[in-house]
Computed example of a mutant assay.
Amino acid sequence: MQTDYSRAILKYLMDYSNMDYPVNIHQIYEHLFNGQELDDNKKRGKLDTIRKNIVGLHTNGLIEMDTEFSENTGKRERYKKEDDDVAIWYEQKLDTRYALILIQKIMEMNNLSLNDKKNLVQAICDCAGSKIMESASYAQNVIKSNPLYDLTEKNGVKDSILFEGQQRYKAGNGEIPDIWILLSNIYNVLEKKKRKKISFKLYKYNSKGKFEVIHDDREYVVSPYFVTERAGMYWLIGLQDSESEDAVNGHKKNLGFYPIDMMKKINILEEDARDISEAFDGKEMTKEEKYKYIIEHQQVFYDEAEKIVIRVHKKNEDESENNTAYNLIYRTFGDDFYMLNEEETYDRILVIKSPYFIVKWAIENIRDIEVETETIRDRIRNEIESLDKIYPA
Rank of each mutant, 00 (worst) to 15 (best):
T228Q: 03
W235Q: 12
S244H: 08
G232K: 07
R230C: 13
D246M: 05
R230S: 15
Y225C: 01
V227N: 02
N249K: 09
Y234R: 12
Y225S: 03
M233E: 15
T228N: 12
Q240H: 04
Q240M: 03
F226W: 06
R230W: 15
H251L: 14
W235P: 08
F226N: 01
T228D: 07
R230D: 15
R230N: 15
S244G: 05
E229N: 10
S244M: 09
F226S: 01
L239W: 04
E243Y: 13
G250P: 03
E245N: 08
E243W: 13
L236W: 06
V227A: 04
I237V: 11
G250F: 01
S223Q: 00
D241R: 09
G250A: 02
W235C: 10
A231D: 14
E229I: 13
Y225L: 04
L236T: 11
D241T: 10
V222Q: 05
D246L: 08
A231F: 14
E245F: 12
T228R: 02
F226H: 01
V248P: 04
V248N: 08
D241F: 05
A231G: 14
P224H: 00
V248K: 06
E229C: 13
H251E: 14
V222I: 07
V248E: 07
P224W: 00
V222G: 03
N249E: 10
L236P: 11
G238Q: 06
E245R: 07
Q240P: 00
N249I: 01
G232I: 13
S242Q: 15
G238P: 05
S223M: 03
M233N: 15
L239Q: 02
G250M: 00
D246H: 08
F226C: 05
F226M: 04
L236Q: 06
S223I: 07
S244C: 08
F226G: 03
F226R: 06
H251T: 11
G238A: 05
H251G: 09
H251F: 13
M233K: 14
Y234N: 09
Y225W: 01
P224K: 00
A231V: 14
V222H: 01
Y234C: 08
G250L: 02
W235Y: 15
D241A: 06
G250S: 03
G238C: 09
Q240N: 08
R230Q: 15
Y234A: 06
G250N: 02
H251D: 15
Q240V: 00
Y234T: 11
V227C: 05
G232T: 05
E245W: 09
W235N: 12
N249Q: 10
S223Y: 00
P224G: 01
D241S: 10
